[in-house]
Structures are given as structure tokens and as C-alpha cells.
């Protein structure tokens, strides 16, 4: 009997492996942030790096996001390739001036003379009862601002390849990892958080969407943990004879509009699933791309299933009511196909 051996990693281990391989390859790469060293990152993205590279390259910082992100920007424009971890994206409020007025604009304001090869990693998402200030996704807010790339992986394979691409990119990159895709023991178990990851170094291009499941009846466009939910919903829909295509955008800046248009031209129906707030965000942008590029191929008005425009409730039943999930995605897709 031939036993096929696959190398399986959780997403968190895939990310820390990517960082370690780039640090071995390039001495200018280093990591700083809150609890990234001794603790290994509170969601495991820098696990084991302190032991491997020591405190001069894996730096635990004080609780001052403005200070360490400002320091990272300074290091980046001086020729280093820092990775700064913003523990929760919800904390952006205390350091946003550094991010959107400095990191995102220095290259432009210097007439292209200064590069800012900085990666900011940050944890997003809810579903585990962490309330209004620790459960948001907010990638749409950052994607609204020009000057930085927005990367949002959904699988261990993509997480590693996109991290290596982000570190090698000369532009500032915000790298959003959802806590629910990391494969952490204390979260609700998620089989899709573990996947095959090659040991060798490889890149996944930033700005290229990926069809995670091919289908002919409806296109479901989403990112991150909602890719997992959409794949679950697609399994349910398949038992009813509806073949859903699941398109994982993987990055919002650049946005792969061609992939959206190409898929909708084939399926004639679009559902956007977004864990970010509903209005003026990713869901509206994706639907606009589809209408601009595939209007004459639509069989139904594009639909979206997004987080309602309310703060994330602490109450578990209320939070679950707000979050898109497997059953809601299947119902929305069914509605599009069958009315």
C-alpha cells in the first residue's frame, strides 16, 4: 500500500515558519510588538522565533503602538524589513497617524525616493465572545486608504506564501490574520485551519484571488474565516444540486477585479460574504466590480451577507445572530439561485 504523506501545519505555524525562513534568508528582517517574543504572539504567529533568533531580532515592546509602529517605520525607511504586530486590529486607534499619514504616504510624499518595506500583522475577527473592542475585522477601513497593501489569507498554505511575499514587498503591507483560522487550541476547533504546507520557501502573489471551490450556479466572494464558512455552505448547497463557486480574494489591495468579473460571467450570480461591517466596505466594492465588469452577465441582483452596522455584542447569542455563518450563507445563495 502506498501511503501518501502530507505535511500539515496550522495557520499560526505556517506564518511563524514563513517569518523564520525570511529571517534566515535576510538579516534585515526582524519582529517587534507586544508579546511577540516570550509569549510567541498571543495568537501564535511568532511562536518559537525568540528561541531561534534571540531578543535583538524578536523584540517585545511596551504597550505603546504609536511608539513601536513609528519605530518600525523608521527602521524600514533606513533599510530594514521590520514586521510589527498590532495585537488586535481594534487597537489601531492609538497608532493610526503612524499608519495612514506616515507609513502609507512617505513613498508618495518623497516622490518615490523612500521605500517603506514594513509588514504590520494584526489579528481580526470575532465569534468567541471577545466583545466590541476585540472582535472587529476592519480590513475595509484600511483598504479604503491608498498607499498600503491589504493581505487577508484564509488557509495555512496561503498564509505562508503571502507572508513571504509581504516581507519581500517594498511597499507597506497590512497582513490580517483571523483568530479563527489560526488553529489555536482554545478556539472552537476548525478543521480548515490545518492544511498542507510545503517545508520549502515559496510565495503566493499579492493581488491574485483564488478559486477555492469551482461551481457553476453562484459565485461566493469572501476572505479569511468566511472562506471556510462559505466552503461549508457550498457542501450543503451541493446536496441540493446548487454548485457554488467560492472565490477567496486573499487581498483587498490590490483587488483582483478580473477574477470577480470572470467568475460572475460564468455563474451569473454573486453573493459577497463579509465579516466586516456592511456599509461602505468590501462587500459594496466587490459588487461594484461585478456590476462594472459583468452587468450583462447577471441573472440576479448581486447580494451580500455582511456584519450589520452595529458594534459587536458581547452576548454570545447576539453575536452569533450578527455573524454570517454556514446556514446563513447557504440560505442567501439559495435565495439567489431559486428565489
Amino acid at each position: 500500500m502506498v501511503v501518501e504523506s502530507r505535511r500539515l501545519l496550522t495557520t499560526s505555524k505556517a506564518i511563524s515558519e514563513a517569518i523564520a525562513q525570511e529571517m534566515e534568508r535576510d538579516p534585515s528582517v526582524f519582529v517587534l510588538g507586544e508579546d511577540v517574543g516570550v509569549y510567541g504572539g498571543i495568537f501564535g504567529a511568532t511562536e518559537g522565533l525568540l528561541a531561534k533568533f534571540g531578543p535583538t531580532r524578536i523584540m517585545d515592546t511596551p504597550i505603546s503602538e504609536t511608539a513601536f509602529i513609528g519605530a518600525a517605520i523608521g527602521a524600514a525607511i533606513s533599510g530594514m524589513r521590520p514586521i510589527a504586530e498590532l495585537m488586535f486590529v481594534d487597537f489601531f486607534g492609538v497608532c493610526m497617524d503612524q499608519i495612514y499619514n506616515h507609513m502609507a504616504k512617505i513613498h508618495y510624499e518623497s516622490g518615490g525616493n523612500v521605500k517603506v518595506p514594513l509588514v504590520i500583522t494584526t489579528a481580526i475577527g470575532g465569534g468567541y465572545g471577545d466583545a466590541a473592542q476585540h472582535s472587529q475585522t476592519l480590513y475595509g477601513l484600511f483598504a479604503h486608504l491608498p498607499g498600503m497593501k491589504i493581505v487577508i489569507p484564509s488557509t495555512p498554505y496561503d498564509a505562508k506564501g503571502l507572508m513571504i511575499s509581504a516581507i519581500r514587498d517594498d511597499n507597506p503591507v497590512l497582513y490580517f490574520f483571523h483568530k479563527g483560522i489560526m488553529g489555536l487550541g482554545w478556539m472552537t476547533p476548525n478543521p480548515r485551519a490545518t492544511g498542507e504546507v510545503p517545508e520549502e520557501s515559496y510565495t503566493v502573489p499579492i493581488g491574485k484571488a483564488d478559486v477555492k471551490r469551482a461551481g457553476r450556479d453562484v459565485t461566493i466572494v469572501t476572505v479569511s474565516l468566511m472562506v471556510h464558512r462559505a466552503l461549508d455552505a457550498a457542501d450543503d448547497l451541493a446536496t441540493e444540486g446548487i454548485e457554488a463557486e467560492v472565490l477567496d480574494l486573499r487581498s483587498l489591495v490590490p483587488l483582483d477585479r478580473e477574477a470577480i468579473v470572470e467568475s460572475v460571467r460564468r455563474t451569473h450570480r454573486l453573493l459577497v460574504v463579509d465579516e466586516d461591517y456592511r456599509s461602505c466596505g468590501m462587500s459594496g466594492e466587490v459588487i461594484t466590480a461585478a456590476i462594472e465588469g459583468a452587468f450583462d452577465h447577471l441573472d440576479a441582483p448581486p447580494a451580500r451577507l455582511a456584519y450589520p452596522d452595529v458594534p459587536v455584542p458581547y452576548s454570545r447569542p447576539l453575536e452569533q445572530f450578527c455573524l454570517p455563518d454556514r446556514a446563513k450563507i447557504a440560505a442567501a445563495a439559495r435565495q439567489l439561485v431559486k428565489g
Partner: peptide
Amino acid sequence: VAAEPGGPASPAARR
């Protein structure tokens, strides 16, 4: 009574 012909048509159908 079946659906009448000539009802509303989607953009894809019109194209």
C-alpha cells in the same frame, strides 16, 4: 396558469 411569456428579464438574459 403558467408564467406568462415576456416577463422581466435579467441583464444576462437580455444580452
